[in-house]
């Protein structure tokens, strides 16, 4: 069947089997490898993308179900080459180690800050509770999201020089 999905503003139209999962459509058909494919069981959350503006686990949605809908992936976060504040935050606060969970974490973090620009640490932890970082770097992921929130609020931003260990 022909499936057409608007991914990051570009129409991607491909002839696929109905059983093709959205994550594989994004990676194999649209060639966008930023979205990672992890556990395949909707546990790990590295495949999180936005479907019509909301984060979903793309390993648990058929591409056919997204036909005619809008998807945003990690490649769609930056604006004209300018990184999104959550991407900057992950850089500033060492929010990634191996980087495998990062695309999903970034998409969920962006959605969280759009809905709640000043989240508490427990709210950040709740938002990413369906996503696994097997480097167990959660402390710095939470700091990275806080950094982005503070930057967007125009307030004092955590100094990137602050030793990460000092807060752990």
């Amino acid at each position: 069947m022909e499936v057409s999905i608007n991914i990051n503003g570009t129409a991607e139209t491909h002839d696929v089997e109905p059983r093709l999962l959205l994550v594989h459509f994004i990676r194999e058909k649209a060639g966008l490898r930023g979205t990672h494919w992890g556990c395949d069981t909707s546990n790990c959350g590295t495949c999180v993308v936005w479907l019509d503006g909301k984060p979903v686990k793309s390993c648990t949605v058929f591409a056919a179900m997204a036909d005619g809908h809008e998807v945003r992936t990690v490649e769609g976060l930056d604006q004209g080459g300018q990184l999104d504040p959550v991407q900057e935050g992950f850089m500033e606060c060492h929010g990634l180690q191996c980087g495998f969970c990062t695309p999903g974490m970034l998409m969920t973090a962006r959605a969280l800050l759009d809905a709640n620009p000043d989240p508490t640490d427990p709210e950040i932890r709740e938002a990413i509770s369906g996503q696994l970082c097997r480097c167990t770097g959660y402390e710095n992921i939470v700091r990275s999201v806080r950094w982005a929130a503070e930057k967007e609020a125009g307030g004092p931003v955590t100094e990137s020089e602050t030793p990460v260990e000092a807060k752990a």
Binding site: S42, G45, V48, L51, K54, P55, V56, K57, T60, V61, T108, E126, A127, S129, G130, Q131
Partner: peptide
């Protein structure tokens, strides 16, 4: 489930 699963 978790917040992302609850979205769909």
């Amino acid at each position: 489930a978790d917040p992302v699963v609850r979205n769909f």
